[in-house]
Design a protein around this nucleic acid. Structure first.
Lengths: 280, 280
DNA sequence: CGCGGGCTTGAGACTTCTCAATGTAGGTGG
DNA sequence: CCACCTACATTGAGAAGTCTCAAGCCCGCG
């Protein structure tokens, strides 16, 4: 009944990794209005925003851009966060930890993703939120955010859509961790992240930035870093992926998807139901 | 790299189990207005509802009660569901399956729980929803539901709270499946379900109905039925629980919680932030 | 009384983990 | 500009948690 000691899993992550990653992993979004606009347009996946909504959101975002170094908490477990974070550049993650240090990453956030909509209702969050790489994000204060949603029902709806998709991804991750083998899990994660990067407009033909380490993959899939390493090698050996230097290239996407039993329907690529129904 | 064949895992579940479970597992909620009112009042955990909201919801619920036999799909994966389901009696679950039949239960629903709020935005759900025991539930059609939320912002807020808590529970399950040992996982699940039953007013001092089988526990925790069995025996042997005949008794709740590293904060027992903020 | 679902048990197999050491590459300080 | 340091990737070997397969058992139900 005893579990593995896992002493090595709790690694302090308070150092800043330096500029190398910044340089190599930089996403071409920068401050150019075009890039940011395109990200804003993508909010909530494919929820189409009216121009007025997009402008209001864009103004708030542009006025609150902040930079975070890699491996830094944006807010910790149990805290009461005071802002919603819209990722503009770099990757972040949500995570939860056990008292003995074991850690589960519950979500990766890539540009155009949003974290913290729930803070409008929550006294304190049950998860932590931190950066993976260097991150540029817009911090929108609770009050501003609430006003924004109040005056722009279309945005409120987009935010709700965002949460619906997040929940769907979480369910798929449960299926991943609970039922798939190590090989399938890692393959599935790579499919998902590549497709999400692509739909954010951040993937070349068959590759994208991939700033997470094998340890991060381990914490997201419920595996060990060592075993992830062997699994990645197997995926390489099978000619499915190439992975080095914070960059992922998918050598054979159909084969990878099939190995992972991946279906993109849980990402709801079609966007919200355009439907007639009200949104509360 | 091959995974276990797991041939035995895909068990057809289309037979009805008979009345035994109904009789023994029946929750004392029945049609008595008192019980139902108290459930309605509990919707969204502890979101306090105004009287008008409660009445409107109650009317809609009372007018749409339906019964489902045990082990029956209410809607399947990929379908477009046309109603929100409010559980009045019995247990249900959300699940996802892999093409080869492996199945992950992603949530258990007990009385006062709600399923399908997301159908206002989703074209098709990425999960299935089915009964565990015999279930009595209120089916509220999409149109009725949308109108209800439109005209009762307090209810809309309660529904949103419900989704926030659901997402939080899902995250905890990811931590459970990804990081905890078998022993801890099963212990954790039992803590959660007992507490949720208790907060629905459906637990005696230290016991509650527990209509799920060990196979269900296996599918929810990412374990095997055989291993769950041995784990349950270990929990019994350690004097933490008693489990037989669809009834769970917690012999030593503090010890069980500690063994599971259980903290109830993720259930957000304090309810939503009463706060000043708008809710979109 | 016999059937079926669910619970138990036993034995062996296998995926994944732990422990521990080595390799690599960039970043830093002298 | 070269040692050194740190984070990360890799490898090897053995341990162990969990799984598979295969029976038996129990008990309520028809």
């Amino acid at each position: 009944m005893r579990l593995y000691p896992m002493l090595g899993r709790f690694i302090a992550r308070q150092h800043s990794i330096g500029k190398e990653r910044m340089r190599r992993g930089a996403l071409n979004v920068g401050d150019n209005a075009g890039g940011m606009d395109s990200l804003i347009a993508r909010i909530g996946g494919h929820a189409r925003l009216a121009e007025a909504d997009r402008d209001a959101l864009g103004a708030l975002i542009r006025g609150n851009v902040r930079s975070f170094p890699a491996h830094r908490d944006i807010f910790g477990e149990g805290e009461r966060p005071r802002a919603v974070h819209f990722i503009l550049e770099g990757w972040a993650c949500r995570y939860k930890t056990l008292p003995d240090g074991r850690r589960q990453i519950t979500a990766f956030l890539v540009p155009a993703d949003l974290c913290g909509i729930d803070i409008l209702m929550l006294r304190e969050v049950d998860y932590g939120f931190g950066t993976i790489s260097n991150v540029k994000a817009a911090d929108i204060g609770v009050r501003d955010f609430a006003e924004l949603l109040d005056s722009h029902p279309g945005l409120a709806r987009a935010m709700r859509w965002n949460e619906v998709v997040d929940a769907s991804i979480q369910r798929e991750w449960m299926l991943n961790i609970g039922q798939r083998s190590a090989y399938e899990r890692v393959a599935h994660l790579m499919c998902e992240l590549f497709l999400r990067m692509r739909s954010a407009g951040l993937a070349a033909d068959r590759s994208c930035d991939f700033p997470i380490t094998q340890s991060d993959i381990a914490e997201a899939t419920g595996l060990t870093a060592v075993h992830v390493n062997r699994t990645v090698q197997a995926l390489r050996g099978d000619g499915l992926i190439e992975l080095r230097g914070r960059r992922l290239a998918i050598a054979d996407l159909p084969a990878l998807m099939s190995a992972a039993m991946f279906s993109d329907s849980y990402l709801h690529p079609g966007g919200p139901d355009g439907g007639s129904q009200a949104d509360g």
